[in-house]
């Protein structure tokens, strides 16, 4: 009798969980689908009252307009150059720093690691004015390299922060055994540590890539010429323009979101174990 009621209680609670999750799933997906579907609607449907959710006569007209838009591919190229550059710098320097900060203690090590954490939490709005001054002074205003360098302010501390928690998971015995065999540190780094943390480095790089791909504030202020404008900044000027075209804006938004969506889905599992590893193990 008691077993029966426990079982029943369990079933009810599981049904309850599924209902909550389904509701949340609708809330989570509705705006995304609304964006995707709206971007496929012709003008008449886009502004129909009451609105229709699914496009009746789907069209790729808005996408065509964005792609043939004067400088779309230049903006895309800018976004790719800047994102790849910032990610590479950030992850390479991050991996070296993470190695250094997790190796045997030396003078200043703990101060540096605290500084990295502080840099990670630093409000970007503080850095924007001095970075603007510095970039202008050294003549890198409105250049790709100028923006890449400023992106390092977040890609480097972030990568280091993540990688440290992964590097910590490498058992000390492995590196010590190699050390006793007389292996050089650089060899241990390149043949043991890097391969072992390879997947972690890939997911860190991916996350860093998405962050730079999505970044708006720095690009908006530091690189607003057509030569260096990234996709988000270009989209901002489309919306700010005289002719506000929701179809164009929404299809642009969709194109910007989909790469980020795919990358995040791919690394979601690995990423979180890194973000919490420090907190969990402690």
């Amino acid at each position: 009798m008691k077993d029966h009621s426990i079982k029943r209680k369990k079933i009810i609670s599981i049904v309850f969980c599924y209902s909550i999750l389904s509701l949340l799933l609708i809330i989570a997906l509705f705006p995304f689908l609304h964006m995707l579907f709206s971007s496929l609607k012709p003008s008449e449907e886009l502004f129909m009252r009451p609105p229709v959710f699914v496009p009746q006569i789907p069209t790729l007209k808005w996408y065509e307009r964005v792609i043939t838009y004067s400088n779309f591919f230049i903006y895309l190229r800018n976004s790719i150059i800047i994102t790849v550059g910032a990610t590479l710098f950030g992850v390479v320097i991050g991996a070296m720093s993470a190695y250094s900060l997790t190796s045997k203690p030396y003078k200043g090590q703990s101060i540096i690691s605290k500084s990295v954490l502080i840099a990670y939490m630093f409000p970007p709005i503080i850095l924007i004015i001095p970075l603007f001054q510095i970039v202008n002074k050294i003549g890198l205003a409105n250049t790709h390299i100028g923006l890449i360098l400023t992106y390092i302010t977040f890609s480097f501390p972030f990568s280091t922060y993540l990688l440290i928690s992964y590097f910590r998971t490498i058992p000390k015995d492995i590196t010590e055994a190699a050390k006793i065999d007389g292996a050089l540190n650089i060899k241990i780094f390149s043949t043991i540590i890097l391969p072992l943390t390879g997947p972690a480095i890939v997911s860190t790089a991916t996350y860093s890539f998405i962050n730079s791909w999505n970044e708006f504030l720095y690009a908006f202020i530091l690189a607003n010429s057509d030569r260096t404008k990234t996709l988000p900044v270009a989209l901002y000027s489309v919306k700010g323009g005289e002719m506000m075209e929701w179809g164009t804006v929404l299809s642009w938004c969709t194109m910007l979101t989909i790469p980020s969506l795919i990358f995040f889905f791919l690394i979601s599992k690995q990423l979180v174990s890194g973000l919490t590893a420090g907190a969990v193990k402690g």
Partner: peptide, 25 residues
């Protein structure tokens, strides 16, 4: 001294891109 050497690029980044701008601010 590999550990100390490897921190140099990171240290430069911290000084040039975070500490110096903060002081400038």
């Amino acid at each position: 001294h590999l550990a100390q050497l490897f921190i140099i690029p990171g240290l430069i980044c911290l000084i040039v891109f975070v500490a110096y701008p903060a002081i400038l601010t």
